[in-house]
Design a protein around this nucleic acid. Structure first.
Length: 877
DNA sequence: GTTTGCACGTA
DNA sequence: CGTACGTGCAAACA
């Protein structure tokens, strides 16, 4: 912009334009994968970005209506009364749109009792007076009255939101035959059906313009109404009051009191990170570069973060560092950088001082006592550092805080990934980072000591946000668990390469043979691993009936293939299923084999922040989904063996822990009795539901109530139950009714827990772990119902996770305290795998059984099943 | 080269 | 139209 050019103020009616976009764009193409509709948001932003690129405003604001009520509805209750309620699917998008605009640092204005157009009128008028070129963008025709030499209207044409027609005074005269200030007079005479403002019958634009041209003003026309000839003249005389009322209502207010004026609306650089985040959430991809590109408004640079006086980090010798640590009072921030799995540098910090040293064997010896002490330590991501220290022979205790774990507990849906994220979110500052694209970085990254200093400050900020119950979960469950997990990962589990490689070869040969037969069955070769090619074969060449729809076509998953085989038997179907099974197993085996380390053991990584419910997840490789269901697949489990220096594997699992938690939470007398009776759960429940003696419960009955019981925990519907059991929906409904007739408190509990979550906005486990559920209030049914099922499940699955974690770290602790060499190797949600050292079986078994059994005091007992064997398969029971 | 969708393994 | 995960492949995208 040159100095001589006038600044340009662009004011936009967010509501009317988003509404047009909502109807213009197909919702199917604009929904997130969990069902949130985004077509209105997308359409608006797309238009908005084009607008900014084209007009390059220097000042900018978007106005919204607050509700349907305004001073106009009070004056005339019928105002806009004919408008049907805007669809909930649209209303739900407005807050999302406002979030996007906030991330783009665009001023959003709305005011109770006024419409967006009144805000536009006020800003436009003030802007014109202050010497701006003003652009008004609105889909409401009443804004035509604002047009003058300084104010131009951009009005979406009927073709679509992207086509904006420019109205300057000349354009208005060309279209309506009168200057802009007269437009409301025309509209008052003609009426506005969309606002429910009836005009003079039989009077359209032509007549209105003719009259106004003849009489000069609306007042003159109305005063001389008795001189108008013909039927329309009579109509005018009959509707004088309507016309006066219309004129009052369609006059936009130009003096609404606003917190800002035009000069306050200077375009701000966007918050690039915030935009990235919300666009990722809304699954907008192509829009991101367009927003970044749009000139005038955006800067792709990070916003200037407040500069903070970083303490210099003093480099010390290991001995000096150890002395410094020993002398420190209060919490110490710790950062251990890792190279090749071992500590490389170590930085420590208190609130006002940062120090660091290079890791050496001397450092290990000097610092070991401090690390093993109860002196409180704050880490950003403790587990890998604790492991590196462990490899160097340094044990860690006194873990007081872990930023990643704490951040995850606070917001389990969007766990922060790094200290930089946390510094940004909780301190609003920018962590100095070396430019990774520069071989010789121009900007220095923070040193380990400085990182520790930041970590300590973030910890303070984060603590302030943690509710008491969540802080307790962190201290009493998560942090002790973290230390136990570090040891489990270091230990790894012995896996036999010999057993695996033999099996892999077998499966390869089998898969090839099956593939040949499958190709013969259809007369050509296809890629059996390609769903797309399979669809061609099944639904076009073999003419099999279309199955369940997916996003890209029709499903070919195992359940669908089994159904097809029943209704339209074809040898290809069965061969395909067999091929899938063989290749899947081989794939798992090969991946596992590849993961065996030089020590003959597989070391997984447990992701403590990997779930929304409190469970762990396992990666590289995932050892929580090793097959178990089929005879064949157990050969894989048989390859998980006791290590050479130990005696046997012990497996321990909770039986029906989630049902027990449900019994505890619901206090259902029937269910509580079931668990206290010692009878098989499903037999007991089956006897109640079907009104027979436990001994008379048939396998079919047991299967049904078992599916129902497990389904309950997941928010199962009659439809889902019927599908699972392959029974009629009516029968499923009947089964649910019988079930709830006997176990009504279960249903009451499930219902009330979702209702409570709707009120609180989050669910809570027995131990106080929280999970937020904003979507319980969503107007989008798919979204809301998904949230309801997840909210129903979260306290149950989460409490089970809490209980297992408590048992886990207590066992880990007790093994050490009793000086045992036995150790926990794996956790698979409700199961532990323990490697028992020679002569320690009885002690280990006792500890595992007791600590799992008494991890929580519920109103029903926690039942623990234990098995023993030389490998995981044998140890199962 | 990266991302997405499908399919499938576990609790 | 049943919760919570991670992985590998093919296909689509850049």
């Amino acid at each position: 912009m040159t100095d001589s050019a006038k600044p340009t103020l662009l004011v936009v009616d967010g509501h009317s334009l988003a509404y047009r976009a909502f109807f213009a764009l197909p919702v199917d193409n604009f929904s997130t994968k969990d069902g949130q509709h985004t077509n209105g948001v997308y359409g608006f932003l797309s238009m908005f970005v084009n607008l900014i690129k084209a007009e390059k405003p220097t000042h900018l604001a978007v106005a919204f209506d607050t509700s349907r009520q305004s001073f106009r509805t009070r004056e005339y209750t019928e105002y806009k009364a004919n408008r049907s309620e805007s669809p909930a699917e649209f209303r739900g998008q407005i807050p999302l749109l406002q979030d996007c605009l906030a991330a783009m640092n665009v001023t959003v204005l709305q005011k109770e009792d006024f419409e967006a157009d009144d805000i536009l009128a006020t800003l436009a008028t003030q802007g014109a007076e202050a010497g701006f070129d003003v652009l008004v963008c609105s889909g409401d025709r009443d804004t035509i009255q604002l047009v003058n030499d300084d104010i131009t209207l951009l009005y979406p044409s009927v073709q679509g939101v992207s086509q904006l027609k420019r109205y300057d005074p000349a354009a208005v005269i060309e279209k309506y035959g009168l200057p802009p200030e007269n437009y409301p007079d025309i509209a008052a005479l003609v009426g506005e059906t969309s606002d429910n403002l009836p005009g003079v019958p039989k009077v359209g634009e032509k007549t209105a313009v003719k009259w106004l041209t003849q009489w000069g003003t609306l007042d003159a026309l109305l005063e001389n109404a008795d001189k108008i000839p013909g039927v329309v003249g009579g109509n005018l005389r009959d509707h004088l009051e309507d016309v006066r009322r219309n004129r009052r209502l369609n006059r936009l207010l130009r003096d609404v009191e606003l917190p800002v004026g035009p000069v306050d609306l200077a375009v701000q650089p966007i918050d690039a990170q915030a935009v990235r985040e919300i666009f990722a959430r809304l699954e907008f991809r192509t829009l991101l570069p367009r927003v970044f590109e749009a000139s005038g408004i955006v800067a792709d640079e990070e916003p200037a973060a407040p500069t903070v006086a970083l303490p210099a980090s003093r480099s010390l010798t290991p001995a000096e560092l150890a002395d410094w640590a020993a002398a420190a009072t209060g919490e110490v921030g710790v950062t251990v950088t890792i190279e090749g799995g071992l500590p490389a540098r170590i930085g420590l910090a208190t609130g006002d001082e940062a120090v660091e040293a290079t890791w050496t064997p001397d450092a290990a010896a000097a610092l070991a006592p401090w690390f093993a002490s109860a002196a409180p330590k704050v880490f950003t991501d403790a587990k890998p550092q604790v492991k590196a220290l462990g490899r160097a022979g340094v044990r860690v205790d006194g873990l007081a805080f872990d930023l990643l774990v704490a951040g995850w507990l606070l917001r389990p849906s969007f766990p922060d990934k790094s200290l930089a994220d946390l510094v940004d979110r909780y301190l609003g500052e920018k962590l100095p980072e070396a430019d990774p694209t520069q071989l010789v970085p121009e900007t220095e990254g923070a040193t380990p000591g400085q990182l520790s200093w930041f970590a300590l400050r973030v910890a303070t900020a984060l603590r302030g946000e943690l509710p008491a119950s969540v802080a307790t979960v962190l201290t009493d469950i998560e942090l002790p668990t973290l230390l136990a997990l570090a040891d489990m990962e270091l230990a790894g589990v012995a896996v036999s390469h010999e057993k695996l490689s033999g099996f892999s070869g077998e499966l390869s040969a089998r898969a090839d043979a099956i593939a040949r037969d499958a190709f013969a069955a259809i007369g050509r070769e296809v890629n059996l691993g390609s769903p797309k090619q399979l669809q061609e074969v099944l639904f076009e060449e073999l003419q099999l009936p279309k199955t369940r729809k997916t996003k890209t076509g029709y499903s070919t998953d195992a359940a669908v293939l089994a159904d097809l085989q029943e209704s339209h038997p074809h040898p290809f179907l069965d061969l395909l299923l067999q091929h899938r099974e063989a290749t899947k197993l081989r794939q798992i085996i090969d991946a596992l084999d590849l993961a065996i380390g030089a020590d003959g053991r597989v070391h997984t990584t447990y992701v403590q922040t990997g779930s929304q419910t409190g469970r762990l997840s396992s990666t590289d490789p995932n050892l929580q989904n090793i097959p178990v269901r089929t005879q064949e697949s157990r050969r894989i489990r048989a390859a998980f063996e006791v290590g050479a220096d130990h005696e046997s594997l012990l497996t321990a699992d909770y039986s029906q822990i989630e049902m027990r938690i449900m019994a505890h939470l619901s206090e259902d007398p029937g269910l509580v009795e079931a668990f206290n009776s010692g009878e098989d759960l499903h037999r007991f429940v089956g006897a109640r539901v079907f009104g027979v003696e436990p001994a008379e419960v048939t396998p079919a009955m047991r299967t049904k109530v078992k599916a129902m019981s497990y389904g309950l925990v997941y928010g199962l519907s009659a439809f889902g139950l019927s599908k699972q059991l392959r029974i009629e929906q009516s029968e499923a409904k009947q089964l649910m009714m019988e079930y709830f007739a006997r176990f009504g408190a279960v249903r009451d509990y499930l219902r009330s827990s979702v209702e409570q979550a709707r009120i609180d906005g989050y669910t809570e486990t027995i131990f106080g772990r929280r999970r937020p559920f904003p979507d319980l209030a969503s107007p989008n049914r798919v979204l809301r119902e998904n949230a309801e099922r997840a909210a129903l499940n979260a306290p149950i699955q989460g409490s089970a996770a809490d209980i297992m974690k408590i048992a886990l770290f207590r066992i880990h602790h007790e093994f050490a305290a009793e000086g045992l060499r036995s150790r926990i190797l794996l956790q698979i949600h409700d199961e532990l795998v323990v490697e028992v050292a020679e002569g320690e079986w009885d002690a280990a078994e006792r500890i595992v059984r007791d600590r799992m059994g008494d991890a929580a005091a519920l109103s029903v007992p926690l039942d623990v099943q234990i098995g023993r064997g030389a490998n995981w398969d044998e140890a199962a029971h």
